[in-house]
């Protein structure tokens, strides 16, 4: 069972704000989904290597060279708050 406190903790880690109703609902949902997933515990995986890349392609190299992006104005337009062509963000400290 995932408690309300655990839900709040996970939400804080994930940077997702939740209201009381959502905390209640997610506590229930997460518990039942994690229960179902725990079926995997019955699989014997001793000595099995994890698969991170399924087709096995390794190290596609390319020249480490910067390319000019043609539509800088399009990127700047997307900034939630722009100042002098820069993306204005909240102070971190």
């Amino acid at each position: 069972m995932i408690s309300r406190d655990e839900v709040k903790h996970i939400a804080a880690l994930a940077r997702v704000g939740l209201d009381e109703k959502e905390i209640e609902k997610f506590s229930k949902d997460l518990s039942s989904i994690l229960d179902w997933i725990s079926e995997l515990e019955t699989v014997d995986v001793t000595g099995v290597e994890p698969t991170a890349h399924i087709t096995g392609i390794v190290n596609r190299m390319r020249e480490d060279k910067a390319h000019e992006f043609e539509n800088k104005a399009g990127i700047v337009k997307l900034f939630p708050e722009e100042k002098n062509g820069y993306d204005k963000v909240k102070s971190v400290m």
């Binding site: 839900v7 996970i10 880690l13 994930a14 997702v16 704000g17 997460l30």
Partner: peptide, 19 residues
Amino acid sequence: TRQYNLGAEVKRRIMLGTY
């Protein structure tokens, strides 16, 4: 930003993955 602009299923999966 994430509370008011992401839908329920997206939040649910972000939560499950974070866990």
